[in-house]
Amino acid sequence: MRYGMRDVTETGLYPISHIPHPTSVHAVFNTEGCILMKNVWEAAVALATGFATTFKHLFRKPITEEYPEYKRVLPERARAVIILTRDPDGGERCVACYLCSAACPVSCISMQSAEREDGRRYASWFRINFARCIYCGLCEEACPTSAIQLTPYFETCERDILKLVYEKEDLLVDHGGKDKEYNFYRYAGVVTEVGDKGTHIKEGKPVNIKSNMP
């Protein structure tokens, strides 16, 4: 339908910017004008097409997938329950950098960062309130260590809403999720048990500040 371009129709279907010219009202009563007949015909056809379409739908098989009886296999990147993954060396990937909680539009993530004896930063507690989560995936996008990931699993209904508040032990899994390879501490130049200064990927030996050699 060249909707915006018609200057008048018999049913008054014109854009609001086109205040009808008085003559267009007369056109309705202008029984001699073939424009009117043409427009009425067009409208009738348009209406009939619509009714025909919906009528045909009546005899089509519904496309509804009836959920509990039939469970569709969701794509790997479907966004539902959030997990905290581990790096290939088995360490917790989460460094409690607060980027996910900052990115979260509904503030459902909270945590406390702490330092392990070897200097590794980790979350002493980590909490996601799934009653509030909107599964937007912004936390996963914000995560610099691939720790927080969304999984396709979504069947978490509870009668008690407090059971939807997940603590770190509920979230932590023993695999790397979608990213099997990455270990943040192999790249970042901080000292942990993963690596000393100068042993990380693409690092030179530490500078000897007591030597005059270039």
Binding site: K61, P62, T64
Partner: peptide, 8 residues
């Protein structure tokens, strides 16, 4: 209405 919209 459901059937018109191809659902149950």
């Amino acid at each position: 209405l459901g059937r018109l919209q191809i659902r149950y």
